[in-house]
Amino acid sequence: MTIQEVKIYHVEMELKTPFQTSLETVRERESLIIEAIDTDGVIGWGEVVAFSSPWYTEETVQTTYHILKDFLVPIVLKKTFAHPNDLQRFFQLLKRNHMAKAGIELAVWDLFAKRQNLALSNVLGGTRREIEAGVVISIDSIPKMLTNIEKHVEEGYKRFKVKISPHTDYSLLKEIRTHFPDLPLMVDANSAYTLKDVKKLQALDEFHLLMIEQPLRSDDFVEHRDLQKLIKTPICLDESIHSLHDAYSAILLNSCQIINVKAGRVGGLSESKRIHDLCGDYNIPIWCGGMLETGISRAHNIALASLPNFTIPGDISASSRYWKEDIIEPEVTVTNGVIHIPEKPGIGYEVNRKKLKKYSRYYETFT
């Protein structure tokens, strides 16, 4: 396949309700939608999941646009690829910038699957026809969070994640466990703690959590190793894992017992598959994280989560969880806590160009 044209759409969509973590509150979600077209007119779709400000990683919507426009798109245009894995070799001269790389790599994977007339999940090596869905509960007043949990319990979600901080951990979890003693529950700290908070983190062991996600600094493996020795709750690493090498380092150091895989964070589906395979070799459970994406990236996540070692329900919820309307058709739906994996070629969903145009602030074409 030879990429003849690339389009970048800068979209902005308002969340149905603000999404609050210990670091940031997101009300409007900016992202970049990538459309790659080959010489036969086949189209692939990808998405850059960086945020407007660098609170999650150092990348932002603006920095990824610069990297795409000035470096990655020129590399891809007019190049002939036998397989999407080839992109890693072409991109390796550019350090990091994983979200920018992932945006265009996802589009090439979608295009490649369509050229094979196969569902993306099949091309990746997925073994499931459906996946269990988890849901994230953002920081709010405790009564509102309990109400949100109750709503999603009724919808059948299989795993619940709540955002915590040192100021809203024990009291919140005590209330949740009082009302939902058997809830499959995990917490996400987004690096809000330090080793000085060991006693606070040890106190959370009584709630029998599935895991605590990213309690300490995102650039640290050693202190996470030390913390895991002191708490019973399994540590899951998220922001710390940007590559296969990061995952390998974390495993060898015993820094975690679980890893969250996000294609956008690690540079795309090829690296995600490599991390998946590594974790399978070491019996490290993994799950697919979410980034408040549009349906395009959500569709890629669904395909990725069909791989066999994704044994924990991921942050892949229904489109209506976040958006009044999504830009794909049909929208992603959850039925009794399960998402059925599309069987149509590529990501299995169609982009609604009318809605894409509606939410695009601008777009640019590269040939």
Rank of each mutant, 00 (worst) to 15 (best):
T25G: 00
T64M: 03
F71P: 00
F51I: 04
F221N: 07
L209R: 11
S165H: 01
D220R: 00
S272K: 11
D197M: 10
Y359I: 09
E271L: 04
S171I: 05
Q92R: 15
Y282P: 09
D219W: 13
T311H: 03
V73A: 03
A192S: 15
D315I: 03
E5M: 00
F112L: 11
V123H: 12
G295W: 00
M186D: 11
Q62N: 05
R361V: 14
Y349K: 15
G41Y: 04
N309Y: 06
L120V: 15
G44K: 09
L195W: 12
R298V: 01
I339D: 01
E213A: 11
Q257F: 05
F310A: 06
S218I: 02
V266F: 03
G264E: 08
T168W: 00
T335A: 02
L183P: 08
V42Y: 08
L106K: 06
L356H: 10
H66S: 14
S141N: 07
I286G: 06
I328C: 01
K200A: 14
P54H: 08
D246Q: 06
N254V: 01
H179A: 05
N260V: 14
T80F: 04
K151S: 04
A50E: 03
D40P: 02
C236N: 12
R29T: 10
V198L: 13
G268M: 07
C279M: 14
G267Q: 11
I231E: 07
K200C: 10
K7A: 04
L204Q: 12
